[in-house]
Design a protein around this nucleic acid. Structure first.
Lengths: 252, 252
DNA sequence: CGTTCCCAACTGGTTGAACCAGTTTGGTCG
DNA sequence: CGACCAAACTGGTTCAACCAGTTGGGAACG
C-alpha cells in the first residue's frame, strides 16, 4: 500500500512525507521543524515549493507557524480535525491505537447514518424515494448472487442516496469526510465489511419507513441491523486492542 | 471589499476573500477563476503569495486545480467538508439556507454530544469524573447567580471535559471542528443559547450516570434535556426558514 | 474541401535570489 | 548587575525566469 504512491507534485510529496512523520510520532508534538531554508535544502527543492507543503500542513492543523519563531509540530491528538482520520489510519503510530480509532469510526459511522436516515424520513422527496427503491432492488439482487464487490459498492451508493435524501448540507459535509475514510478503510481491510442474513429485510424496512416519513422506525431498523454487524466486528477487533500491536494475524 | 477584518497576512487575506466569494455564490460552482498571473495582478501581489492562498482553497476542496487547464470552482455543497461550515455560516448566500444549516448544526451537535456522553460513561476514569464534578458545581453556582456569560463558557468547558472523558480520538476530532463552529455561532447569535430551569438537575443526572458507567441513562438525560431547549430554538428559527423564500424547490 | 498534425499561446508547477518583518540572543555600555 | 541594542536567526513577500501539461488555430497534406 502506502509507499510507492507517485505523488504527482513535489510540494504534495513533501506534504505527505511530513504528514506521515508527524502522524507516526517520528516528529512528536511540540518539537520544532528545521527552518524552511534547511528543509528546502533537505528535500532538494526551493523555499517557495516547500512553503506550499507548509500551508497544507498548517491548514490541517498539524503545525503552527509563527514569523520569527519557526514551525512547531502541533498536538494533533488534541487539536486535530476529522481530516486527519484518513492519514492517521494510513500511517498512524502503534497498531493498538489505530484499531481503537477504527472501532470508534465504525460507531460514529452508524450514528451519522442514523442521523441521515432520520432526516431523510423527514425531508425525502419522491425522486429520492425512487432512487432508494432502485438501489434496494439492486442490492437485494446482488445479495442473492452473493456478489460481494457489488454489495460493497451498492452499500456506499445507498448511504450516498440517504444522505442526499436528508437534504442537509451539514450531514452531507460530515458524511463526505467520514465516508471517504470509511471507504479507504474497507478497501484496505476487507473483513471490516460484514453482512447479515437479514440484510434484504433491513433494506426493505428502512426504505419503507423513509417513504412513510416514519423517522423513528427508520432509525430503529438501522440501529438494529448495525448492532448485529458491529457485534461481530468488535469481537474480531477486540483481541487487537487488548494484546497485539500490529493487526495482521488471522483470527483463530 | 472586506470590512475591518485585519487579515494578518497577504496570502490569508486573499484566501478569505476568495473563500467568501465562493461560499456566497458570487463565484458559482463550475466557473473558472482568472489565471494565477491575472489574480496576482488583481490583488497587487505576486504569484507565489497568491498560490499560497490557492493551496488553502484547494485543501478545503473549494477549488480544483489542474496544470494547463486552470482553476475551477468546486461545488462545495456536494463535495465540501465540515471545515466549510464556519465560513459558510459567516459569509453564506441567502439567509434561508443559512438558517437551515444552523438548525442542522444544532441537531448534529446534540448527536455528537450523545456519542461523547455514551463513550464517556464507558471509558471515563477517576480524574475525568472529578473534573466533571467540579465543572458541574461551577455551572450550578453560575446558574443560581444567573451569570449567563459564565454559563456559556462553562457549557463549552463541560462539553470539552465530556469529550476528553470519552477517550476517543475520533470523537475529539469531530468535536473540535463542530464546537469551533458552534462557539462562533453562539458568540454571534446569542439567542441560540438557551437554558431550561431543570438545567442543574440535568447536569447532576448526567454526571452521576457517567460516574456509574450507565451509558443509556446518560444519553437519555442528554436527549431529554436538549429536546426541551431545541424545541424552543426551532420555534424561534422556523419563521426565518419559511420566510425569505429565495429557493426554487417547492414541496409537491 | 476535409483531415491531420504541429506549434504557439495559454494554463499551472518549480526554481533561485533577494529583500521585508518579526523574535531571539548575546554582548556592550551605562 | 541591568538596560539596551544590533546581529543572526525565523517566516513573509517579491521578482523574474523557466519547466510542463492543455488547448486551439492554422499550415500542410490527402
Amino acid at each position: 500500500m502506502g509507499q510507492g504512491e507517485a505523488s504527482s507534485s513535489v510540494a504534495e510529496a513533501i506534504y505527505v512525507d511530513l504528514l506521515r512523520q508527524i502522524v507516526s510520532g517520528r516528529l512528536p508534538a511540540g518539537s520544532r521543524l528545521r527552518s524552511e531554508r534547511e528543509l528546502a535544502a533537505d528535500y532538494g527543492t526551493n523555499r517557495n515549493t516547500l512553503r506550499e507543503a507548509m500551508r497544507k500542513l498548517e491548514q490541517g492543523r498539524l503545525i503552527t507557524v509563527r514569523q520569527g519563531q519557526g514551525v512547531t509540530v502541533a498536538d494533533f491528538r488534541k487539536t486535530g480535525t476529522i481530516e486527519i482520520l484518513g492519514p492517521f489510519l494510513a500511517h498512524g503510530g502503534d497498531g493498538r491505537e489505530t484499531v481503537r480509532v477504527m472501532v470508534d469510526l465504525l460507531v460514529v459511522r452508524v450514528q451519522v447514518l442514523e442521523m441521515a436516515v432520520a432526516m431523510a424520513a423527514q425531508h425525502a422527496q419522491e425522486a429520492d424515494i425512487e432512487r432508494l427503491e432502485a438501489l434496494v432492488a439492486a442490492q437485494v439482487e446482488a445479495f442473492e448472487r452473493a456478489d460481494r464487490q457489488a454489495l460493497v459498492e451498492g452499500d456506499i451508493a445507498m448511504v450516498d442516496a440517504l444522505v442526499d435524501a436528508a437534504h442537509s448540507l451539514t450531514i452531507r459535509w460530515i458524511a463526505n469526510t467520514l465516508l471517504e475514510v470509511y471507504r479507504g478503510l474497507v478497501a484496505k481491510v476487507a473483513s471490516l465489511w460484514v453482512i447479515e442474513p437479514i440484510f434484504p429485510r433491513y433494506l426493505r424496512r428502512l426504505v419503507d419507513a423513509v417513504a412513510r416519513g416514519d423517522a423513528e422506525d427508520a432509525v430503529d431498523a438501522t440501529r438494529d441491523y448495525y448492532q448485529r454487524t458491529d457485534d461481530r466486528l468488535f469481537r474480531t477487533l477486540e483481541p487487537f486492542i487488548r494484546g497485539g500491536d500490529h493487526g495482521q494475524a488471522t483470527k483463530g
